[in-house]
Amino acid sequence: MIKRYFTLLLIVLISIRLSAQVWVVPAENDARKSPFAFDDASRKAGSEIYMTSCKSCHGEPGKNNAVPLVPPPPDMSSVRMQANSDGAMQYKITNGRGTMPSFKNTIATTDVWKVISFVRSFNDKYVQEVAAQAAGGASVANVNIKLNWLKEQNQIQATLSAPSKDKGILPVGGAEVKLFAKRYFGNLLVDEARNTDAAGVALFNFPKDLPGDSAGLVQLVVALSNEAFGDAKRDTTLAIGVPTYRPPLNEQRAMWNVVSKTPIWLLLAYTIAVFGAWGFIIYVFLQIRGIYRAGSEKNTESAE
């Protein structure tokens, strides 16, 4: 009985483990398609992003030189990798799982599609399906973003507009935009994603305590997060953050610093010990000279 129970348990555990290996992508995401057709320009741009953000783990495509992690990062040219739909790839890159990090805030959505464009170049059999709305509509191209800092309210105002064929420049309403502050590692999402109103305006509340550099400067990026409207972003640098001065870690005297920044107490202890000991040693060497001289002195005592 107990044996049976354990067998059952084992089967359950193994199946849980196996299911954990499968990376389930929601059907909605799985079906997504790139808003633009992959071409040489997108592949080239994707290649550059791949080399800086992906290669360190996945290795060079086709060379099977990925870092041996658990689970192993697949090679780009592998069947396993290419079996993903475009949408699945976009979902996985964006959200990450386990050792695969999320690039949600580091690589813009359109750039993610460019990376996928690059990845697909290692699959001869691949035929792209472009998203229907993007393939058809040209009205969303060339979205222009203007940034305004409403100082009193401490808000960032993004105004989106796009040229149209017959009516001149029109505001872009209903587009999702995100505001980021650039940090050392990736972009920090500020406030939430906003939809532009009919006037093409989105307002972001900016926090009062975001650290800037020593002058309070923060580099801001506003980007479209809905690829249906194409690829547009605007960055600007504003003195909007809290001025922050962080002394470099090697500024003060410390045990781990360079020799010119030795802690004073250590410098003194070492110097006193070395000079003390060698002072006596040199004194004793001088005594040997004293012995030699004493031997040359005429003295009666030893002659007795």
Partner: peptide, 17 residues
């Protein structure tokens, strides 16, 4: 032997050193 002559002065210096 640094000119050692067994003089008391030499012994004195030596012992001190």
């Amino acid at each position: 032997a640094v000119n050692w002559k067994h003089t008391p002065k030499q012994y004195q210096i030596l012992l001190k050193a």
